[in-house]
Each structure stands twice: as structure tokens, then as C-alpha cells.
């Protein structure tokens, strides 16, 4: 029983940054803009959150600042891919190069040449610190960012499928020219979606540095953005599908940690492969062909056929 609770707790903890990143991917790609740069935006969110929390002592402000910083980076991607009809993959890769550079450069500038920040104030836990601290249930008392991630998922589902604006986003992602003839501003819609995706990715980075660990390190964000991207495709570009995919990734990670804890006959490096092997197997057996939004990754140029 303890183990199950522990598994659940670790799963939720590890999936949170992935959920934010992946939701960012969903909103951007549903509007037709591929966003490989999620990883980079998460890194910027991570450093901003840790630095803001250090200097202000207010983790909530830090969380919001991380979202804003993510949006600033996303703006670069939006300008390139929406206004300049750039190759979105290349622009995303560029952001992934730029962002860690900027993050470490500013970390060294702010903290006397150090590659990590000092320990900073974290976001609180959902039920506060005292909640059943000595019982096994304490592992379920997750960081509040986990709850925010779930709410973000519900909100995104509601917006995408139950509002007029969501319908427009999906139309722009499937057939921008048709949407344009109906008077929808394709460029504006895509700009908003990419910016929102940056905000979410920024939150994702913050959920690592002020949610899980309590400082920025160069390896704080090590591939979560790419796994989130995989979760988007896995979840077939829907908010809840993506959320499920993130939970699965989190669960396999948690399983690896728990199995690796005791005396184990399986070598640890083989065990560590488990999440990734399982993902491929699940994809082959259950998910199959995934179809991206039709105009995903295709720049829209007004008036062109």
C-alpha cells in the first residue's frame, strides 16, 4: 500500500512539468505552429522562477514571472514562424540552443559565476506542510503546481472544444485559408496560441525549479521538453490525451525509481530504459497512426494557394 501511494506521488510530481510543456505544445500545434522550442522555453522559465524567488522570496510571483519569460521567448518563435513564414523546426531548434545559453549566462552574471542558483523558496504543497506528515499518505500531498497543471488541462479542453475561440483555433490549424475567408485573423490567432504555449512552458520550467527541486541547475531541464513533445503526439493533440500520456511517462519514471530502490536483480541501466521502451511498445500496440493538425508546421501566407 505504501508503495502504491509512493508510486502515485512520484508519478504526479514527475508528470507536472511534462503536463505544462505538453499543453503548451497542444495549443501551439492546434493553431498550426510546430513548437520544438518547448524545451528552451522551459529552461528560461526555470531560471526566471529560481532567480525571482531568490530575490523576492515570493514563489507565486516567481511562477508568474516564469510564465512571462516563457512568453517573451515564444514571441521570438511567433515572429519568425508566423510573420516571417520561417521554417518552424529550425526556429524551434534555434530557441533550444539560445535558451540554455541565455539561462546559464545570466545565472553566472547574477550569482558570481556559479552555474547553479542558491536554494530558493518553493511553492507550497496542496494541503500545507503539516498534512499527515508522518503517515504514508504524505506522499500524496503534492506540490500546488501539480494541481495548477491539472486545472490548466481542464481549462484548455474547455476553451478548445466548448468556446467559439477554440473552434477558431482548430480551424486555423486545420485549414488556415478557409478560416481566413470566414474573417478569422490567422496571424493573430497563431500569435496568441504561440504566446500561450510559451507561458505554459515557462510554468513547466518553474514547476521544476520551485516545485520539485528548489534551485536552478544546468540539468534541471534535461529533455523534459522533448518528452512533452512526444506526449503531445502520443495524446493525439488533445488536452486530456496528452495529460494521460504525461502521467504514463511519469509513472514509468516512478516505477524505475521504486524498482531501483531495493535489492534488484535487473541492472540499473537496463531498468532506466524501461520508460522509453514502454512508450514505444504502447505506441505500437495501442496508439498507432497519429494524425497531426493538417496545417501543423505550414506557414500561412495570405493570398497564396
Amino acid at each position: 500500500m505504501d508503495k502504491v501511494v509512493l508510486l502515485l506521488g512520484i508519478t504526479l510530481m514527475y508528470s507536472t512539468p511534462l503536463v505544462f510543456g505538453a499543453l503548451g505544445g497542444v495549443i501551439s500545434e492546434r493553431s498550426g505552429v510546430t513548437n520544438i522550442g518547448i524545451e528552451g522555453m522551459m529552461v528560461i522559465g526555470a531560471i526566471t522562477a529560481a532567480t525571482t524567488s531568490y530575490f523576492t522570496g515570493n514563489p507565486w510571483l516567481a511562477f508568474l514571472a516564469a510564465g512571462a519569460a516563457g512568453a517573451v521567448v515564444a514571441l521570438l518563435h511567433a515572429v519568425a514562424s508566423v510573420s516571417f513564414a520561417a521554417d518552424q523546426t529550425v526556429s524551434g531548434v534555434a530557441i533550444n540552443l539560445l535558451a540554455p545559453g541565455i539561462a546559464l549566462f545570466s545565472c553566472r552574471r547574477f550569482f558570481d559565476g556559479g552555474a547553479t542558483t542558491p536554494i530558493v523558496t518553493k511553492l507550497p504543497k496542496v494541503f500545507g506542510d503539516g498534512w499527515m506528515a508522518d503517515t504514508p499518505w504524505a506522499n500524496l500531498n503534492v506540490n500546488v503546481s501539480t494541481l495548477i497543471a491539472f486545472l490548466a488541462c481542464v481549462i484548455m479542453w474547455f476553451v478548445l472544444y466548448k468556446t467559439k475561440w477554440g473552434l477558431r483555433v482548430r480551424a486555423v490549424g486545420e485549414h488556415p485559408a478557409a478560416a481566413d475567408t470566414l474573417g478569422i485573423d490567422v496571424y493573430k490567432t497563431r500569435y496568441v496560441c504561440v504566446l500561450v504555449s510559451g507561458v505554459l512552458a515557462g510554468f513547466g520550467g518553474a514547476s521544476v525549479t520551485i516545485g520539485i527541486i528548489s534551485q536552478f541547475t544546468p540539468t534541471a531541464i534535461a529533455g523534459q521538453g522533448f518528452i512533452a513533445l512526444a506526449a503531445v503526439i502520443f495524446g493525439k493533440w488533445t488536452p486530456f490525451g496528452t495529460y494521460g500520456a504525461c502521467l504514463l511517462f511519469g509513472a514509468t519514471q516512478a516505477l524505475t525509481i521504486i524498482l531501483g530502490g531495493g535489492q534488484s536483480i535487473i541492472p540499473s541501466s537496463i531498468l532506466a530504459m524501461l520508460p522509453y521502451v514502454m512508450t514505444i511498445i504502447v505506441l505500437v500496440l495501442f496508439v498507432g497512426r497519429s494524425v497531426a493538425p493538417k496545417a501543423d508546421g505550414v506557414p500561412y501566407i495570405k493570398g497564396s494557394r
Binding site: F226, A230, M273, G288
Partner: peptide, 15 residues
Amino acid sequence: FGIHEVITSIMTNWI
């Protein structure tokens, strides 16, 4: 199987 090459690539990198 129609599985996006980007996902499998990322997974195989870690494997």
C-alpha cells in the same frame, strides 16, 4: 505503424 519519427528518435536516444 505510423509512429512519428520524432517520438521514437527521442526515446531511442535515451535507450
